[in-house]
Every structure is written in C-alpha cells, then in structure tokens.
C-alpha cells in the first residue's frame, strides 16, 4: 500500500504528461493537439510541485505565529510552477489565435491536409 501512496502523485503527473504527448503525436485535429499541449503543461506543473512536497509538511506561509519552519513544504517549485502556468497560458493563447487564422485560410483544421509547406 505504501508504494502507491509514495508515488501516487508521480504516477498522476507522468500519466498526464504522456497522455498529452500521445494526443500531440497521434491526433489529427489542431485544436485537439493544442488541448494535448495544455494537458502536458498541467502534468508538468503537477510533477514540479510533487518534487517539493514533504509528507506531513505545511504550506510555506507564516500565517499563524506557531508554525515551525522545519516541516514546511519547499517553496521553490511553487515559484517555478507559477511562472510555468503563465507561460503555458501565453503559448496556448498564441496557438489558438494561429489556429483561428489557419482555419480562415484553409477551411479545415485537419493537420494531415495542411501540407503546403513541405520538401
């Protein structure tokens, strides 16, 4: 049992990452691929946070005076994830606008048909 509780978060994070990557690799529709990218981002954020988690630790905020500094969770991955989330949003917004423009030009979002730029 403790194996599962030990690695549950890692399993969750990496399964999200690999499902997202599978969508990107295997799916035809551009919007579906962008959804895949957003799932990969969520997965990575989850993975980064679990790196800094300490079993039984408390949030790194000194809201109440009695909190001891020893068993606080590592604040650094949380700072990284904050940045990573906003980067994810920025990339997604740009991707979706490009998808809209691509739809205006091609009339379809099927990536197998959008092949003018090749060789």
């Amino acid at each position: 049992m403790n194996f599962l509780s030990e690695y549950i978060y890692y399993i969750g994070a990496f399964s999200l990452i690999f499902i997202g990557l599978f969508i990107v690799l295997a799916k035809k529709n551009l919007i579906k691929v962008i959804i895949g990218l957003s799932i990969v981002d969520t997965g990575i954020n989850l993975f980064l946070i679990t790196l800094g988690y300490i079993r039984g630790g408390t949030a790194p905020v000194f809201s109440k005076p009695g909190l001891k500094a020893e068993n606080m969770v590592d604040p650094v991955p949380q700072a990284l994830v904050l940045t990573a989330i906003v980067i994810g949003v920025a990339v997604l917004a740009l991707a979706l606008t490009l998808a809209i423009k691509l739809y205006k030009h091609y009339g379809t979002l099927n990536l197998r048909k959008i092949k003018e730029q090749k060789w």
Partner: peptide, 27 residues
C-alpha cells in the same frame, strides 16, 4: 526520494525568508 526533506535552497528560504524579505508568504 519522495516526500522526505531533501531540499537545500528551500530550507534557507524558509528559515531566513522573513527577516531577509519581510514577507510572510515565502512563495
């Protein structure tokens, strides 16, 4: 290793965070 305190930089931030930056929310 999962879940055990293995952090180096994080410790410093938690211990010295308040008096160096004055913010209670270390993050």
């Amino acid at each position: 290793p999962f879940g055990i305190s293995k952090i180096k930089i994080g410790d410093y931030y938690i211990k010295k965070g308040i008096e160096e930056t004055g913010a209670t929310n270390i993050v």
